[in-house]
Design a binder for these strands. Sequence first.
RNA 1: AGGCGCGUAGCUCAGUGGGAGAGCGCUUCCUUGACACGGAAGAGGCCAGGGGUUCAAUCCCCCUCGCGCCUACCA
Length: 890
Amino acid sequence: MLDKRYEPKDLEKKWYDFWIEKDYFRAASKSDKPAFCIVIPPPNVTGSLHIGHALDITLQDVMTRWKRMSGFNALWLPGTDHAGIATQNVVEKSLQKDGMDRHKLGREKFIEKVWEWKKLYGGTIINQLKSMGASCDWSRERFTLDEGLSRAVREVFVRLYEEGLIYRGEYLINWCPRCHTALSDLEVEHEDVQGRLYYIQYNFAEGDGHITVATTRPETYLGDTAVAVNPEDERYKDLIGKIVRLPIINRDIPVIADDFVDSSFGTGAVKVTPAHDPNDFEMGKRHNLPFINILTGAGKMSAEAGPYTGQDRFECRKNVLRDLEDIGHLEKIKDHAMAVGHCYRCKTVVEPFLSKQWFVKIKPLAEEAIRAVREGQAKIIPSGWENSYFDWMENIKDWCISRQIWWGHRIPVWYCRDCAEIIVSRDTPSVCACGSGSLTQDDDVLDTWFSSALWPFSTLGWPDDTEDLKTFYPTSVLITGFDILFFWVARMMMMGLKFMKEEPFRHVYIHALIRDAEGQKMSKSKGNVVDPLKMTEKYGTDAFRFTLAAYAAQGRDIKFSENRVEGYKHFLNKIWNVARFISMNVTEGEEIVPFQKLRRGERLFAPTLADRWILSRLSTVIREVDQSLEDYRFNDAAGAIYQFIWHELCDWYVEMIKPELYSDNAEAKSAALNTLIHVFETSLALLHPFMPFITEEIWQQLPCAKESDSLCIRRYPSSEDGIEDKEAEDKMNIVMDAVTAIRNIRGELNVSPSLELQVLIKAANYAGEVLAENSVRISKLARTKGIEIGKEIHPPKHAATAIMPSMEIYVPLEGLFDLDAEISRLKKEKDKIGAEVRFVQKKLMNEDFVRKAPKAVVEESQAKYDEYLGKLQSMEKNIEKLEQWRKSDE
RNA sequence: AGGCGCGUAGCUCAGUGGGAGAGCGCUUCCUUGACACGGAAGAGGCCAGGGGUUCAAUCCCCCUCGCGCCUACCA
């Protein structure tokens, strides 16, 4: 017997431990079963579970459990990401508290510290994944800085270098002065801000007059090496070639002509700062201008900044403006909306910064990645994201992969101090070709995304030719949020195609971002984060998982609302209570026969209409769930199960079979009980991928034959587990219509539920038979004391009525109801039907409709018209009758 | 600047070329032998606005308004 209430906490742990102990989640390297594989988007090792992870994990677990139960050799491969900048920042902060910094510590000691940190806290996120019920194969857990994965990184770097796809060069890159490292274009977040456009006058070096330039970053004038105008600009034509003198620092620079300049912006004259602006960088190259770097890596003014040397860049901006104003060179200031780049890790304003970095020449890789999706080897779902994918891939720029931090894969490049040779090697070299042993490794590490780009094959053992790779690559589906489509998905696609010659995943399912109930992005600073651990604590993991799955409709952000979780907690309660109901009705020694035996006729099985109906509905819902999951429509799958269990199984079927369950007829009772148990057991299996814990708990206690030791490895239901039966569904609809109609009369006319009603039903042959066969059931569900069914029923006096196509129902209520209320109820109903009739009639009178619409549609309309018209006429008659009674009563 | 998405019941959202559905909330009634975390019955919508295509538009096309998001080197 189950407890009165479901207590998630203890049971969740109990069953998770059980699954792990039994090793159910371990996939086979070699198997006769078809392979199914998901690699987890590795969370940051320093991270802790947020609601985005929770959604991600839930969907992956639903897929994995579903496939595992469906007979696949299912592998969900877990792991974590070393998250270079983020992790280094975290550890640096903790050092700071002890008054230390990484430079005092030195590189090696610092790396040791990070590993220590990882050992201490790296397990947090993994344990949180487990608490969500994630059925990962933990024996295959990986970390991007593992030895194996590091080997993959080196292999890839060396091969790309050898093919000329990795190069080193001095370019303008995005620099975070706080993290003290280069960033890729993607790692810069643009934020619209209300900035200012400053108009600054540069005097001519000789003679009077000046030229005015407009800039948003006045301090960069210190690095100007030219002023550019459009060659077509009449205003400035004569000035081209003249020399102007920068104020305060008195450097002379030329006025040049360049097509790039937009005459309509600002003054039409642009200051050119080649070392601090991407466009100016290009112009500088075109015109052979000097590149003057006025900043240091820390964001302070360099020695090139004259009197401002050593000042912070924003401090310098203020000072420059003040000084320019003082000497009358600041002409005016205008408001100007613009986008400013910030570091995605620390939100510091990034600087375009000239430095020597490593890059991946990405175009050749991108071409293949575009082709794979275009030609359908890899499919992005929902397909709308393919546009973004193509757009980005087609306009891709070389990828800056070197980072000036310490935590990460150190670039496998060594420089010879004696001969300046550059050695790029898989293994750490000890001597140079020149014989010198004086080698130093490049100080930089690789972008974290470089190693995660290899994740789908590095985790399976590449560069070795492993069984896992043969079995599981390409992986089946990648499930992730759109926020890392470019960062990660696109790069995996490129690397996978390059090194495995095959796409890394057949499908990419992109899910939405979760926002708060107001639609705001969740962030710690806004304080609107929903903590998944609190949700699971409060409502149980199953309810939370089910909520996330039910929310996961394609193509729209999720506005998360807690009361929905509460609603699904009620669903758990419902399921729990049906289970209790079943166990209460199984008497000691009762034999529960496996359904297949009943089906095959090995045991006497005399299903009633209700049994046949629920088995038919079961068959349908299984098909719907299966198809929905196949299409990644998680919300539809969850909704279908919810609807079936609650409203069909509980509300109708269970109520309907109570007469049998309480009867002395052993045969009838057995058919009902066996059907109920079978349908419920199958429903639990159907639901298991969504709610693994409660389903396992109930299933283990359910009195029935089991093919496996755990629900999580039970065969997933197929539509064969039900029996499609159109006739039963039709008949049940008649029965349910009758019950609903009687209940409706009772409800609408405020007749006490305790009062048992007398009911007369006028129905023709087929419906009449169906109703007669099920009159006991109807009687029970509608609480009647007697039902008279016949073709020639005459409406009794003072009866409430319900008219339906297949039947007319009369409920004599003399003295029990308000005749006026009934008349107005019927009139309201009649008006509705009348509107219907007119609508369909109008359609049918439209010749174009009859001629051009598909035959089936026209016929349907005609049938509807006949049906509604008949109903309307009956209703009118009835209303007339009631009105006569009313008159005669007066 | 370009691109994408969204606008459907009070709220959160499904949905489809043939007069719209769910969950929660709301109203009324009910402690009927699983469940009040329950049951029964209801109310509630010019499917953002305008135009077009079509026999037929909430759905397809165009425009407008509103709200998001992504990409972008205009100083």
